[in-house]
Simulated scan of single mutants.
Amino acid sequence: MSEFGNLLKSLRREHKITQRRLAELIGIDFTYISKIENGSMEPPAEDKIIKMAELFEENPEAMLLAAKKVPSTFRKTITENKNVPMFLRSADRLTQEQWERIKKVVDEEE
């Protein structure tokens, strides 16, 4: 089962919503929900995940990332800032301490 499938199943059960009802609310076939939860299908498109997040009162970006999708709100920054690709190429080599320092700088900006 995928991370997104596990998350979806957990949220659905927590909110006591059947696969059929979720499918009706989101506008997809209920068998697709089952296949997502058991990991045999990829997560749906961004708009469907955002609807799920709203329904479950969850952070849409967190759900999109769990689905291994880049939120469209990030795309402009990724594609228009020439420093982002350079940073992303080296990001997997950063230590936990370096990530904490980056987070501290970002938090100070907010």
Rank of each mutant, 00 (worst) to 15 (best):
M1T: 10
F4P: 05
F4H: 05
G5T: 06
N6G: 07
N6W: 08
L8A: 07
L8R: 09
L8W: 12
K9Y: 10
S10R: 13
S10A: 09
R12H: 11
R12W: 13
R13K: 15
E14Q: 14
T18Q: 05
Q19K: 13
A23S: 10
E24L: 10
L25D: 13
I26V: 15
I26Q: 03
G27I: 05
G27Y: 10
G27R: 07
I28Q: 04
I28N: 02
D29R: 12
F30W: 15
F30A: 06
T31N: 11
I33L: 05
I33E: 03
S34G: 13
K35S: 11
K35F: 13
I36H: 09
G39A: 03
S40F: 03
P43M: 03
P44G: 08
P44K: 01
A45C: 03
A45G: 11
K48I: 05
K48P: 08
I49P: 06
I49K: 03
I50D: 02
K51S: 14
A53H: 06
A53Q: 06
L55P: 11
L55W: 11
F56R: 03
E57N: 15
E58D: 02
E58L: 12
N59A: 02
N59L: 06
P60Y: 08
A62L: 10
M63W: 15
M63T: 00
A66C: 09
K68E: 14
K69I: 13
V70A: 03
P71Y: 12
P71L: 10
T73F: 01
F74W: 15
F74D: 01
F74C: 03
R75I: 14
R75C: 12
T77H: 09
T77N: 06
N81R: 13
V84A: 02
R89T: 06
R89W: 13
S90T: 09
A91Q: 04
A91K: 06
R93M: 12
R93E: 14
R93F: 15
T95N: 04
Q96I: 08
Q96C: 00
E97T: 11
E97W: 04
W99M: 15
E100Y: 05
R101L: 14
I102T: 00
I102H: 02
K104R: 13
K104Y: 14
V105W: 11
V106T: 01
D107I: 07
E108P: 00
E110L: 12
